[in-house]
Amino acid sequence: MGKSRFIELMAKSMGKTATEAELAELEVFFKQFPEYKRMHQVTDTLKGNTGQLNESKQKNISEKLEELWYKIKASNEAPVIYIETEQPKPAFKWQWAAAAILVLGMACSLFYIREFKQRDEAARLVMHTIHIPYGTTQKLVMPDGTKVTLNAGSEFTYPETFSKNTREVSLNGEGFFEVTKNPKKPFLVHTKKLTVKVLGTVFNVKAYNDDKTTETTLLKGKVKVELKNNPEKTIILLPNEKLMVSNNLPQTTAVANHNVNVAKIEYQVITLPRVKPEEIKETAWLDNRILFTNELFEDVAKQIERKYNVQVAFEDQALKTEQISGLLDQEPLQKAMQIIEMTTPFQFRIEGSTIYLSRKEKQN
């Protein structure tokens, strides 16, 4: 049934001019679309509240509504599957013509409300995933105003529109979050090993799958962390605290040559030293720096790969366990390696995008 036919039948029904066949046609429509039955009942009751206007105003409104009626009738419509007989169009009584226009308005409102809800639901299902190449970082602003800075080698997934109750994103890599406060909609960061839940705060999450640990460092506010392999266990972090969770935790470890099993540390919360903001190594990457203190060469090498977009190859595997300290700022790759070389017994060569590390030969 076309729109104009529906309006015409509604108008005739309320104006008491509809034939039995037209009433039957209208009833078939109501059975298919029962929500319009309620509109018919509402407009039918409204029809009796319009008798207070004088005759001249009624005639004026009737003429304008009749003009609008024919514009609606003349507008583009979907094809209809009924045959309409040619009959003289009766003069419309302005009361039920007004009710018919009201019905059209209510129908359009219902359509647009449904359309908006459907688009909103569809937007929540649209997910964006971005990949940050080595050698770069990227800043994003979430739909709620939350600011996210992503480190090199990260993969980040977020929805087009957040849901009504939560704001949820997923991270494989490293991200610095400045979350817009909203007590009614917690912000959740999902990683492979844990979920960080906040209401509004500033924190850093380092969750590369190929790192030994997943780390959450809190700078402002308060966060709650849930471990994926132990959902009932929650950890509350306060400012200047860092949570470290093992990514690949073995079940047991042999101690010396004895068959003794010892408990492993699944996670650890440490308090960061009180230093200047620019001296916090967990967030040094935001300024394109690498700050490391007594860290394994193997772990520092991964940071070098991400910062300089290179591959590090250890020709001497023992070098991986060397503990090194230092600061790499804006130096080019060659200079950065020379800085580390000053305090560590190794030598390097660069071939293309690969750095080869070997033990420095002892001089006689």
Rank of each mutant, 00 (worst) to 15 (best):
T180M: 00
V196E: 01
Q58W: 04
S62C: 07
K362N: 08
F92I: 11
T136K: 07
E232D: 11
N165M: 11
K47C: 13
F297R: 01
Y36M: 12
E66D: 12
T50Q: 09
G326P: 00
E361R: 13
E322T: 05
L333H: 03
L68H: 14
E63C: 12
A98D: 02
A254G: 12
T321P: 00
R289G: 03
N54Y: 09
K206S: 04
V179C: 00
E351Y: 03
F292T: 02
A152T: 03
K59D: 11
F30C: 14
Q87H: 13
K47R: 13
E174M: 05
S109D: 10
W285I: 01
T283S: 07
Y208C: 01
P34Q: 07
A91R: 12
C108E: 14
T195Q: 04
P159G: 10
D287P: 02
A256K: 08
Q303K: 07
W94L: 06
T180F: 01
E322Y: 06
K193R: 07
K192G: 00
Q41V: 14
R114D: 14
D44A: 13
A301W: 00
F6H: 08
V269F: 15
G135K: 02
V223P: 02
V126Q: 14
I265K: 15
A100E: 04
I304D: 01
R167D: 04
K16G: 13
L102K: 08
G2I: 08
T136Q: 09
G105D: 08
K362Q: 12
K264F: 15
S358V: 14
A100Y: 01
R349I: 04
V80E: 07
M106K: 13
V225A: 04
N364Y: 14
A122P: 05
L171A: 05
Q118H: 11
N248H: 11
Y36S: 06
E241C: 14
K197W: 02
I355P: 00
K164Y: 10
Y308T: 00
T293V: 15
A11K: 04
E121C: 07
E178S: 02
K185N: 02
Y134G: 03
A284H: 02
F346Y: 09
Q87D: 10
